[in-house]
Deep mutational scan, measured.
Amino acid sequence: DSWHDTVDGIELELHGADEELLKLAKELLKRGVSEEEVRRIIEELLK
C-alpha cells in the first residue's frame, strides 16, 4: 500500500511522537485523509 510509505515518512519525522499518534496517523491515512492533513492534525496535537 502506498500509505505505508507515507506513514514511514511521517514516522521518521515524528520520531518523538508517541505510539498513539502514529496509530492515529495510520488510521487517518487508511481512511483516505491526505498526508498534508494528517501532518497538520498531528502537529496540532503535538503543540
Rank of each mutant, 00 (worst) to 15 (best):
D8Q: 13
E35S: 13
E43A: 14
T6A: 10
L14N: 05
D5S: 08
R39F: 13
I10C: 02
E37M: 07
E43Y: 15
E27A: 15
A17E: 06
A17P: 04
K30T: 05
K30D: 09
K47S: 08
L29V: 03
V33W: 13
L45R: 04
D1H: 08
L24F: 10
L45Q: 03
A17F: 06
A17I: 13
H4E: 10
V33A: 06
S2R: 05
E35L: 15
I41K: 02
H15Q: 11
E35C: 08
E36Y: 15
H15W: 14
L21P: 00
W3Q: 12
K30I: 06
S2W: 14
R40S: 06
K30H: 07
L29P: 00
H15I: 12
T6W: 13
V33E: 03
E11Q: 11
E13R: 01
E36P: 10
E44F: 15
L22R: 10
H4V: 10
W3V: 13
E44K: 07
D5A: 07
E37K: 06
K23M: 09
R31W: 07
T6R: 10
E44G: 09
R40K: 08
E11P: 05
V7Y: 13
S2G: 11
K26C: 03
L21C: 03
V38P: 00
L21A: 03
E43N: 11
W3R: 03
L28T: 00
D1T: 08
K30L: 15
K30G: 09
I42K: 00
E27W: 14
K47T: 08
A17H: 09
E11Y: 02
L28R: 00
G9F: 15
G9S: 12
E36N: 10
G16R: 02
L14Y: 07
L12F: 10
D18Q: 09
D8F: 03
E37F: 08
I10H: 07
H15M: 13
K30A: 15
L12D: 04
E20P: 05
T6L: 09
D8T: 13
K47P: 03
L29W: 03
G9L: 14
R31M: 09
L29C: 01
L22V: 07
V33M: 10
E35W: 15
L12W: 06
L22P: 00
R39E: 02
E11H: 14
H4G: 13
H15S: 10
A25S: 02
E11R: 08
H4C: 06
V7A: 11
G9I: 14
V33L: 12
K30R: 14
L29R: 12
A25I: 14
R40E: 03
A25T: 02
E35N: 07
D18V: 09
V33N: 04
S2M: 13
G32Y: 01
S34C: 05
E11C: 06
R31C: 03
A17M: 13
I10P: 09
H4K: 12
K26A: 09
W3T: 10
H15L: 14
H4P: 12
E19V: 12
I41P: 00
L12E: 05
K30W: 08
K26H: 08
W3P: 06
G32K: 01
G32E: 01
D18C: 03
I10D: 07
I41A: 02
L22N: 03
G16C: 02
K47D: 04
D8V: 15
E11L: 15
S34M: 03
I10T: 06
S34Y: 03
L45W: 11
I42S: 00
H15K: 09
L28C: 01
W3M: 12
S34E: 05
L22M: 13
L28Q: 00
G9D: 11
L12Y: 03
S34F: 03
D18T: 15
H15N: 13
E35Q: 13
E19R: 10
R39T: 04
A25C: 01
L12H: 08
H15D: 11
T6K: 10
S34I: 03
L45T: 03
V33D: 02
T6F: 13
H15G: 13
